[in-house]
Design a protein around this nucleic acid. Structure first.
Lengths: 117, 117
DNA sequence: TCGTAATATTGCAATATTACGATAATATAT
DNA sequence: ATATATTATCGTAATATTGCAATATTACGA
């Protein structure tokens, strides 16, 4: 049980704890797709036969550090598989996970539209 | 045409202009669902028969100002219809728009999974 | 007209996110 | 061993987002 006093109150932070986990989950998944770089990364990875690594930097035009950061955000949700091959790391979609996420979002969308006035 | 010099470069801002519009659109739509308060608002609105207005404040437990802000974010994407009835404003899903958005996201999801290695 | 209820807007505080350069870490090739 | 290529991490700068109090706005009712 978390409470605030007028002293300890912290502004500017998403109050996740007031929402049920099912709702927080949907928001977390959506956040992965809420930045164009991450959408572009997922699109590009899925389009390559052998999957790709650091061509994303050339392809997208953001710095290596930034791309790596975005890859980590996507990966934290379990949506990527990465295998090292020498110096190179080949990224690949975790399709099972991706479809899980898609299903969850769709289930929310469908419930929402079907219940509406 | 936007260019940067090493002087004028601005950090910390999403570089939308380097991405095709189709990708920016997906990211914009996803952003609506990327906060639990907005997910909860959409869920609640869809569950009420007559649609609802400021019960969201009681229901969700964020301040009136904050709820109003989130409603504006959702509304900016065209996902809400609001009709005034006296002092009260009844919110309702714009289902056509909602399904449009759902379709677009799904089309991205499907393309992504189907092409992957 | 005045008070009340409902919503929107403004201003502010604080954290979160985005982006990059520099550096570290790892593996290969010479 | 050294140099090079590749990716991850750290530190930092700057904007974006979240949340609330206070205020404005609008509509109704007495």
């Amino acid at each position: 049980m978390i409470t605030f006093t007028s002293q300890s109150y912290i502004m500017g932070v998403t109050k996740r704890f007031i929402f049920p986990e099912s709702i927080n989950q949907i928001a977390s998944f959506a956040k992965v797709f809420a930045h164009p770089a991450r959408v572009a990364i997922l699109k590009y990875i899925s389009e390559q036969e052998g999957c790709i690594c650091n061509d994303l930097v050339d392809e997208i035009g953001l710095s290596q550090a930034t791309i790596s950061q975005h890859l980590a955000v996507i990966g934290d949700t379990g949506l990527l598989k990465g295998t090292f091959e020498g110096k190179k790391k080949y990224y690949c979609l975790n399709i099972e996970r991706f479809q899980e996420v898609q299903l969850l979002l769709n289930s929310f969308f469908n419930k929402t539209t079907s219940n509406c006035c």
